[in-house]
Write a protein that binds this DNA or RNA. Sequence first.
RNA 1: GGGCGCGUAGCUCAGUGGGAGAGCGCUUGCUUCACACGCAAGAGGUCGCAGGUUCAAAACCUGCCGCGCCCACCA
Length: 843
Amino acid sequence: MANVPDKPSLDGLEARWGDRWEADGIYRYDPLQPRERTFVVDTPPPTVSGAIHVGHVMSYTHTDVVVRYRRMTGKTAFYPIGWDDNGLATERRVQNYYGVRCDPSLPVDPAFDPDAVDSSGGAVRISRPNFVELCERLTAEDEKAFEALFRTLGLSVDWTTLYTTIDERSRRVSQKGFLHLVRRGLAYKADAPTMWDVDFQTAVAQAEIEDREIDGAYHRVRFDGADADGALEIETSRPELIPSCVALVVNPSDERYRALVGSNMVTPLFGVEVPVVAHRLADPEKGTGAAMICTFGDVTDVQWWRELQLPTRVVMQRDGTIAPPRWGESGWPSGDAARANEMQREIAGMPAKKARRRIAELLGASGYLLGEPQQVRHVVKFYERGERPLEIVSTRQWYVKQLEFRPALLERGRQLQWHPPHLRARFESWVEGLNSDWAVSRQRFFGVPFPAWYRLDEEGVEDFEHPILADERSLPVDPSTDAPDGFGEDRRGKPGGFVGDPDVMDTWATSSLSPHIALGWGSDDGLFERLFPMDVRPQAHEIIRTWLYYTVLRAHLEQDSLPWYHATISGWVLDPDRKKMSKSKGNVLTPIGLLEQYGADAVRYWAASPRLGVDTAFKEEQIKIGRRLAIKILNASRFALSLEALDGPITQPLDRSMLARLAEIVAESTQAFESWEHARALDVTERFFWSFTDDYLELVKGRAYGGHGPEAASSAVTALRTALSVLLRLFAPFVPYVTEEVWSWWREGSIHRASWPSASELDTDADPTELEVAASILGEVRKTKALAKRSLKTEVRRAVVHDTAERLAVLDRVRTDLVEAGNVAALETRAADGFSVDVELGD
RNA sequence: GGGCGCGUAGCUCAGUGGGAGAGCGCUUGCUUCACACGCAAGAGGUCGCAGGUUCAAAACCUGCCGCGCCCACCA
């Protein structure tokens, strides 16, 4: 009946079964199934410009295991796949890979050859179309690598659903979502201070900011009173911003300065009169208790500037250098405008760091710097992909409202079922800490453009207050090449004509619509309406504040709903020293070699072992164990399937007992999966499996070969095959290749479309005790042989089992198997309170 | 400063009211007719510390110590 190979092997299973599954459409979504029989996953589209590492393997395996389980319970899976290729991550990779920079002012070079770029003299500037072409070219290559990995790993995604975050569907959905927000007043354009990366020269959002500790220096600086009496000392790490100082601030309760509040002081070097103001956020404990307010040094400055309605005097330019004098001889509200301009010329064009040193010298020379600058390590905000501290500059950006929805979003967080539950706290602390609306426009190139244009008045000045929005039916549009309705392309850039919005969306503005993209929101096949909200969002914990948060926000605003019912959060894979893997540390482990060396099942076994939410140190040993398991499955199956005896009724107590125990395992595994605890499901199955091979198989081996007659043999064989069928299915979500291979030896169809085992297939009337008693006695016999350094074949002349009457009665039912497996000549029993076995070995 | 999590054998981790566990590693054996990519066995732990609750605590409570992360602050 079974077609069992002589030398079963794991080699080549990935390619063989991968092709077969694809050809047979095993993992294809079935749109005819009703929603309740569909399992819908918001698969993370990985950032293809990033390194493939073992963390991907772990988190994607976690999801795949769960999907495979659901599929076997009779559901069809909508398990899409996408690539996140849009955005700054790709641009940065293209810049480094080809040695280029995008310069939108350059015309297209039709003859541009990326392979001929000579960047030895610094990055080569190329046009925007040429740059975007390179982005597309490189991401296409990166996507191939990811697809190869995901296919080898055996992810059961439906490859017909493939999308990328820059493709036409994603652009259409992103633009449609944006237009809805604008029309409902939930997105708006504003000119306001924004966090700004001076190298990438783009706005960034709060979610993309990280703190880093860097070297700095506190400078103690004296401000003289405007009326010649009184002076105020402040401490600042950014003296180069003195020209943009608009006020000094103290705490209203600070007795030391109370008298000065309301008076004016004069900025050193620049001679500008600024008021002393009081505000609760001024901390008397910090520095001198008095601080200067600049436009803008940090977010507190912005808050002071806004709440105290201070003037604006910006000196920091978008490229991170100090602006040249721009207020003219009379423009400075300074007692000595000529000197102020002279001072600014001293630092104009310098990057902040250099200007800081120069200003410190000038302050020192004129006696305003008190003591030496004090070197400190301090924490500064950086764009997560950036290299220099963020500046705050005033720019016109699109924003999505979020501040006013904080209470509603917290409630959404409570409705969502988190696995593990405690990670909801991260979501909550993020929502509670939001300090501004979402700055969603980026001054970049490889992204989804805003479907908006601006009219030019007769002077050619843009009317930002009244954007022309694209018609939803025309999406996606590119306002840099498409003209708005009612305008010909010849009106572009002309007075009385229009210009396109030059910006692109934050990549999260697209990714936050991943359920909408995957389900084809806005297309008329009804898929979105049927399957939204999805069942589960799987992801890693570091992007709770970005991807998870933004997706919840968008679904709340657009659908007044959660985007999914569950969120499963995988931990990180740490390096063996428990350090986070990162490119800069050079400790990133790529899984490709591991997959080649150990096989996909082994790697998946390792990946599925940690629970959700737990960071785990990488251990190659765990992968070897996975391989050992896969090989064991192969060999145990070969044994069970190559026995000659025919199937027959399961009559023997040991056989029934084993199946009864297996029924418990089925129940435990099922319950674990239903509780989203895949690791426990694997653990209970694996634990049983090893005792199955070590104890049960050994106990019935002689009988199965026919040593006690055909009926006893067929009972064993049938029990073995019944158990094998169940075990293979319990293992199938974790090790899909080896289980499919074995299944194919004796069963029709794919195991991955077989039904999840149920206790009703097994003997639930029997008692698992027989197996347990037999195994424990066999263990004692083995121990005696091992301690005597004898072969396990050694005959036992006499074994005396001491145990309770109940257990001795149980023993009696499995006596034959036990005697055979232990090679026991005489097995005697004695009633006793506790369990022990006296073993007398033969010669 | 606020929050979350963790601390169990050399290592990686499971166990959440009643016997201190698994795998790896180590040690010692065993060519046993599914498997030497194997099998069997052994050694190894005051369950971070202190107090409390309980007949009973690794588990529950309180405090402390250590580690990691998140948020906030960051003059």
